[in-house]
Design a protein around this nucleic acid. Structure first.
Lengths: 106, 106
DNA sequence: AAAATAATTAGCCGAACCGCTAAGGAGGGC
DNA sequence: GCCCTCCTTAGCGGTTCGGCTAATTATTTT
């Protein structure tokens, strides 16, 4: 029920927009998750899960969960290659939700 | 210890910047608090506490606490006039912390 | 097949969050 | 003085969050 298919709602669906803001700003609320996004940006938008996890003090499962929160918010996507998982920064989503909200303040 | 005086740290203090991001993004994580900022923006950046509280479904004490979180994050400031409290939108802070962080993603 | 690697899922636990009601201060009107 | 209004503070209770370890799945290697 958490993950909704891309085309399930129209682009201007107001309720969906509020849900998106909720998910995105909740995801950005934690320093580790913001840091993950910065790492992705700094390393070409596409980083292996292990390379992310090794950069953080917390345990790998904890990082995995942070990545899941980011994924549910649409801020990253995943590409599986064999036994490796690459996380990809969804920059457009970040700007379309957080950026647009901020831009409303002029 | 929560509220730090304005000039206590230098502008480029990296630690202070991280603390500021923590406080600001944590404040933005809740829909009601984002809504409060939108209401402030829509009504001339300066609104009486009661006028804010009356716009929300939740109880007045709950709104007061949301306002306190926003104040601790520096996103609003308070001006007391008699027995009324006016909350003022700190737009610069919003842009300087959240906006700048987002801008780092190009 | 067995072992090593890559990563997730499951489950526990303390801390923080967010709602409420009730009580408290502080200013203004009578 | 008294009371009413405005708003905050105090404290309780359920839910969520975020850390960990242990167990599991899936893939590659030997």
């Amino acid at each position: 029920m958490k993950r909704r298919e891309k085309g399930a709602t129209r682009a201007r669906d107001g309720l969906a927009e509020l849900e998106a803001q909720d998910a995105v700003f909740a995801a950005l609320a934690h320093a580790s998750r913001r840091h993950i996004l910065v790492v992705l940006h700094a390393r070409g938008d596409r980083v292996k899960a292990g390379d992310i996890a090794s950069r953080f003090a917390c345990s790998w499962p904890t990082t995995t969960r942070h990545l899941r929160v980011l994924e549910d918010a649409g801020l990253v996507s995943v590409e599986q290659e064999g036994r490796e998982r690459f996380y990809v920064l969804e920059r457009e989503r970040l700007h379309a939700v957080a950026g647009d909200w901020l831009a409303g303040f002029g």
